[in-house]
Design a binder for these strands. Structure first.
Lengths: 189, 189
DNA sequence: CAAAAAACTTGAAGTACTTCAAGAAATGGA
DNA sequence: TCCATTTCTTGAAGTACTTCAAGTTTTTTG
């Protein structure tokens, strides 16, 4: 829980009472590698903050193959954000890629937190604003770069991360097949 | 300006004094069709709310072709959100597709608004949270649907909108060439 | 430590798209 | 209302990828 609070305090100031209340409104758990934190079709009533470890957002295509659409490592939030906002069923699943320490907050508790602590409203406003910006850049990469350029770009932007998760998940995150990424890396393209 | 205020009031309550202050901190202008509201490489110190009309976000590819990555019609915000957040240079341009009435808010004034009026912090938190959710769905469509499915999906979700903007812009928004979309519509694929 | 499972590689064949070029149709401005 | 501009269409040729299938390497687990 300390990582979580420390992260929040990097963005907004909270007094002790507020910190206590914040801790009361969230829960922290360990999840094993491969464990599903939220399953597709389940009500997406919560989102996740990674204190330690790594999560991914999974989409099941019609053919039954899994597509990784997002990753989250330390200090990132992850969830099916639209389903969470609307309190509807998730179309994405959330899975742990490593043994992970995760802070979970429910919709109900998040609403209460932001109502009672204006600095948290501010924190989440900034958080989602940055996300919206990052998403625009991602579309930009997808629309203007070739598969090879996208991989090289990711390699320079997140060199350590690439070592941390299986290559076929990186491939689907970049919008290409595992086989093609393998060929790119081997210089066979 | 009345459309703008009415829109905000659909989400949060403001008293007269707050409404006055809000109006003071933004500006409303008309833009002609094709007019550029924010140019690539310009400091992205402002974002735009569409009171009437239609805007688009443009990316210039290396080949010099324009790619439309987002549209905004009445009651939507548009801008280079990451550059706005970081007060850096825009990598996208913003252009009016029709004669449009647009509310502009600068970074400085937005910061002041959300600090002084907590309900606006809340409004923008919800706004960006929905955007983050919508962006996840967009990636989902791009990664799981064929070009034809993406077009049909857009056609059922925004039937009126498709009539409103040139087809080649819809094509680039969907991540495909204008020629291919033309063939899809003609059933020649 | 061995066996099983997961992840990666390779080549061959296929395909969903792009690019180019040119003409036709629609729209907009004086 | 007419001319210029913008937008849309069409076909032919090309390509950046995908899919499949099989083998190899690496990692995980009892």
């Amino acid at each position: 829980m300390e990582e979580f609070v420390a992260h929040i305090l990097k963005f907004v100031l909270l007094n002790n009472e507020e910190i206590m209340f914040l801790k009361d409104m969230v829960s922290e758990q360990e999840f094993a590698k491969k464990e599903i934190l939220l399953a597709q079709n389940e009500k997406a009533d919560r989102i996740f903050f990674v204190s330690k470890g790594c999560l991914r957002l999974i989409l099941l295509s019609e053919k039954g193959t899994e597509i990784t659409t997002q990753f989250a490592i330390e200090n990132w939030w992850l969830g099916d954000m639209l389903a969470f906002y609307n309190e509807t069923e998730a179309v994405f699943s959330v899975q742990a890629l490593e043994k992970s320490k995760v802070v979970t907050v429910t919709k109900k508790n998040l609403d209460e937190l932001v109502s009672k602590i204006p600095q948290l409203e501010r924190y989440f406003r900034m958080c989602f604003q940055k996300t919206a910006g990052a998403d625009q850049r991602r579309i930009r990469y997808l629309f203007t770069m070739s598969a090879e350029e996208r991989f090289n770009n990711m390699n320079t932007m997140f060199p350590h991360f690439i070592q941390r998760v299986p290559q076929y998940m990186i491939a689907s995150y970049l919008g290409l097949s595992a086989e093609f990424l393998s060929k790119i890396r081997a210089g066979k393209v």
